[in-house]
């Protein structure tokens, strides 16, 4: 799949922002007043910034409101509803904390559930696609959720939780890679099933439909950079999980915490780039490519 920067930034930063909102909603850290204002500002900048970035890959962003209409069937529409509901509820909850020094617990819990629900709907947009076997596994929502919650704990300064959740996120990331690497081969879709010519003999793509490229090849057959995938995986997991955990185990200070956050974000960006760049769409089979 073509790794579009807008979608990589969106899923990384809004995941982090909603992860932070999840912890704020549950009351960790139990901040009020201007400290709460600072935490909520950071969370909203990340979550809303990510959402705005996701509209950059739309052909007609001016029609984006129409995307709220099909929540019955479409995970993308559900994501829109979840995101707006989470942001509205958490804003009300934040108003209580910042201006009235009041913790409306139930509202916070509801906001936390909606925040994490938004990350789940994002994951399901990818996880539902049978056409991309690497994504069509139950680990895909686990991958998005674990990184979002671990990043949220890190941002919220919940050191003990952050260490445990980063280790879990790292483990799920490794499992996602190991199972994802085999997913295409075990999906049952190959050139024989795509062409239904396998009972005659071995099928090979002889000539593409056109001499030039096309939308399908640009969007779905991305092979550039895959050769560095193994190195990038080491970099991704090192920055995303290993380094932040090591830094958090050191005596706490705010500078080390900042480095841990920056390393985590860089690692998640690399991981998300790989998530797209390594994903192979079955339509590539018609072009003899993966």
């Amino acid at each position: 799949m073509h790794p579009a920067p807008s979608v990589i930034f969106f899923s990384t930063f809004s995941g982090l922002g909603f992860g932070l909102l999840f912890f704020l909603g549950l009351g960790f850290p139990g901040v009020t007043g201007w400290t709460a204002f600072a935490f909520f500002t950071i969370a909203y900048l990340l979550a809303v910034g990510g959402l705005i970035s996701s509209t950059f890959h739309l052909g007609h962003p001016e029609r984006a409101l129409k995307a709220f209409s099909q929540w019955r069937s479409s995970w993308l529409s559900r994501e829109g509803w979840c995101a707006v509901a989470a942001l509205v509820i958490m804003a009300l909850y934040g108003v209580g904390l910042v201006f009235f020094d009041a913790r409306w617990t139930l509202l916070g819990i509801l906001g936390a559930i909606l925040s994490i629900g938004t990350v789940f709907t994002t994951a399901m947009i990818y996880g539902q696609l049978k056409t991309i076997p690497r994504w069509n596994i139950s680990l895909t929502p686990a991958y998005f959720l674990s990184i979002s919650i671990a990043g949220g704990a890190l941002m919220a300064g919940q050191v003990t939780w952050a260490i445990a959740l980063l280790v879990i996120a790292g483990a799920i990331q490794l499992a996602t890679w190991m199972i994802g690497d085999k997913a295409f081969a075990t999906s049952g879709t190959d050139m024989a099933s795509a062409t239904q010519l396998g009972n005659i003999g071995t099928v090979r793509a002889f000539e593409p439909p056109h001499t030039g490229t096309n939308y399908l090849l640009r969007e779905f057959v991305h092979v550039i950079g895959r050769k560095h995938a193994q190195k990038l995986r080491v970099i991704a997991i090192g920055l995303m999980a290993v380094l932040p955990v090591v830094l958090l185990l050191l005596p706490f200070n705010h500078f080390i915490a900042l480095i841990a956050v920056l390393a985590h974000v860089a690692g998640v960006l690399a991981s998300r780039w790989l998530f797209f760049a390594q994903a192979e769409h079955v339509v590539g089979l018609y072009y003899g490519k993966r």
Binding site: L58, H60, L76, N214
Partner: peptide, 19 residues
């Protein structure tokens, strides 16, 4: 009504949709 998100083309295994 199309916002050009491209998700339908992602969902199609046959490459039948082009933006």
């Amino acid at each position: 009504d199309c916002i050009g998100c491209g998700l339908c083309a992602w969902a199609c295994p046959y490459g039948a949709r082009e933006m």
